[in-house]
């Protein structure tokens, strides 16, 4: 269901189960709170995030979980998804919660650093690491990496590979469909909303 989140009528469990992201729609209600997800979860080992209790909140209809900062520590590694005995996917539940936060306009700070993925897609037709991260990466990884990045075209050429960017025609197509399906509005909304708040 490609349905936008509406606060007044939010039944959290129902909304998540029927969300376009949920590949295991019947699993959520079957959660037995066994905690297996938490016991294999790398994020739970190293932060306050706890997938079992996140799912518990959802089942209890506790919408405060949408505002919980802890959910932003999940790795999206799908380990929980692959072992849950009730065929639930805490990983996807978390992804939907974050999308609700985005729709509510309370996740701007989490998304702003990554808007470059969207811009790059709209302008060049591919993803790639947003440029705002380059200085820190250069610092952490070293000058050799940066040197390679600035000579990428030569390296690709040497390896007999096509240029990085897709054909002009393809870029136009992708950009057109992403505008038409509302993606451009989505990222502009986040950017403008964020600016207004400053």
């Amino acid at each position: 269901m490609v349905e936008k989140f509406r606060e007044d009528s939010l039944d959290l469990e129902e909304y998540i189960s029927h969300n376009i992201k949920s590949s295991k729609p019947k699993g959520l209600l079957k959660c037995v709170q066994c905690g297996m997800c938490t016991s294999v979860c790398p994020a739970a080992q190293h932060s306050n995030y706890n997938p079992r209790s996140m799912v518990e909140c959802v089942l209890e209809g506790d919408t405060a979980v949408i505002e919980d900062e802890d959910i932003w520590y999940c790795f999206y590694c799908y380990t929980c998804h692959s072992i849950c005995p009730a065929d639930n996917s805490p990983c996807e539940v978390n992804q939907v919660l974050r999308q609700i936060a985005v729709d509510k306009g309370i996740a701007d700070d989490h998304l702003i650093p990554f808007l470059g993925f969207g811009d790059s897609f709209l302008n060049h037709g591919i993803g790639g690491i947003p440029e705002n991260f380059f200085p820190e990466m250069k610092e952490d990884i070293g000058d050799d990496w940066w040197d390679f990045k600035t000579h990428l075209d030569d390296v690709r050429n040497h390896l007999g590979l096509d240029p990085v960017f897709p054909s002009e025609e393809a870029i136009v197509e992708v950009s057109t469909i992403l505008k038409s399906c509302g993606f451009e509005d989505r990222i502009n909304k986040i950017r403008n909303h964020h600016k207004d708040e400053d």
Binding site: I20, L111, F117, I126, I129, P166, A170, G182
Partner: peptide
């Protein structure tokens, strides 16, 4: 093929892309 772009993956799992896009 040069008409292929990218799957959106990195942006998708950074929550920038929604599932519909």
């Amino acid at each position: 093929d040069r008409a292929q772009t990218c799957c959106t993956g990195l942006g998708h799992y950074s929550d920038v892309f929604d599932q519909f896009s």
